[in-house]
């Protein structure tokens, strides 16, 4: 990291030069590759570049099938110097930007498009169903947990939340506060799907998905695609958008063992990855913590 910081501070930085977002939400009748292609095209156009300029493509597929490196052919991309799928689950977006930034700084590629798209939500089906399949396909040891009732990833998040809340004495209102604050941001965001202001009463009234997680603790499951274009500061200098500098990044996976003394549910990698990422940042005024269930956001915040 320190070499990165020196390189970025003294010489040049990686930048995000363009962003592309498709329609997002209950958008049916389109595949993930279709969303992904549109998102990449929009991001490249937003940057003031042409698809011919793209020499790197990182693809993160959601739960639906079909999105993979063949997206390059679908987009007519040729002579790429970087092409792969990235899957670090909820960390994929950040990790794609970090890998793209590393590549443009070391000369591995010059213009890298990073894209996520998903079309797992089906008309008339619940959000939960979109994420249930992987749990139910389990065999062996894992299938004993599915058979016992751990039929979705939300059950596992609920378990982590339960442990976190009990261990630190966190009341339900603290989870509610995260939901309320996220909604408050969404109210002013024209691209957000849920823009009705939320009260603590609304939070407590929302149904349990798996206690201690209310409906309003869980993320939306959305169809759509999003892409960014990562390039060098030098390249971006002549482009149409003011670049967003990628000043630092860090990755940390402390891991845990499921046995006596385990830190399951109590810690995240944020303490280590955050410190690494902020090494070259002079002043942090805005912190965004990603988590598909609100307790993850709280854990990430308290890790600092």
């Amino acid at each position: 990291m320190s070499e990165n910081a020196v390189m970025m501070g003294r010489h040049r930085t990686a930048v995000i030069a363009g962003v592309g977002l498709t329609e997002v939400g209950k958008v049916y009748g389109r595949s993930a590759p279709s969303f992904a292609a549109e998102a990449v095209r929009r991001a490249v156009t937003d940057a003031g570049l042409d698809l011919c300029d793209v020499d790197g493509l990182l693809v993160n597929a959601g739960k639906s099938s079909g999105l993979d490196v063949t997206l390059a052919r679908r987009l007519g991309l040729r002579d790429l110097r970087m092409l792969c799928e990235v899957n670090a689950f909820g960390a994929s977006a950040g990790i794609m930007v970090a890998q793209a930034a590393g590549a443009v700084l070391t000369g591995g590629a010059d213009v890298v498009a990073c894209v996520f798209a998903d079309a797992s939500r089906q008309p008339g089906a619940s959000s939960g169903e979109a994420y249930r399949r992987t749990s139910l396909e389990a065999t062996g040891f894992r299938s004993a947990e599915t058979a016992s009732g751990f039929t979705s990833v939300t059950h596992r998040y609920a378990l982590a939340a339960s442990r976190y809340m009990q261990h630190y004495g966190i009341p339900q209102e603290h989870l509610g506060a995260v939901a309320l604050s996220q909604r408050a941001w969404a109210v002013d965001n024209p691209d957000a799907q849920m823009r009705t202001p939320l009260t603590m009463e609304d939070y407590h009234r929302s149904r349990w998905i798996v206690q201690p997680l209310h409906l309003l603790d869980c993320c939306l499951v959305s169809n759509g695609g999003a892409a960014v274009v990562v390039t060098t500061q030098a390249r971006a200098a002549v482009l149409r958008r003011p670049p967003v500098h990628v000043l630092g990044w860090g990755q940390a996976h402390p891991g845990y063992v499921l046995e006596r003394g385990s830190e399951f549910g109590l810690v995240t990698g944020a303490a280590a990855s955050g410190a690494a990422a902020m090494r070259s940042a002079r002043a942090v005024r805005l912190l965004h913590i990603h988590g598909t269930r609100h307790p993850r956001g709280l854990r990430g915040l308290s890790s600092r």
């Binding site: 009732g149 378990l159 149904r207 349990w208 798996v210």
Partner: peptide, 16 residues
């Protein structure tokens, strides 16, 4: 740790 799945067909308490 314990959780409660209120699924009306089969409400269950699960745990570690």
């Amino acid at each position: 740790a314990a959780i409660l799945d209120p699924n009306p067909d089969d409400p269950v308490v699960l745990g570690l």
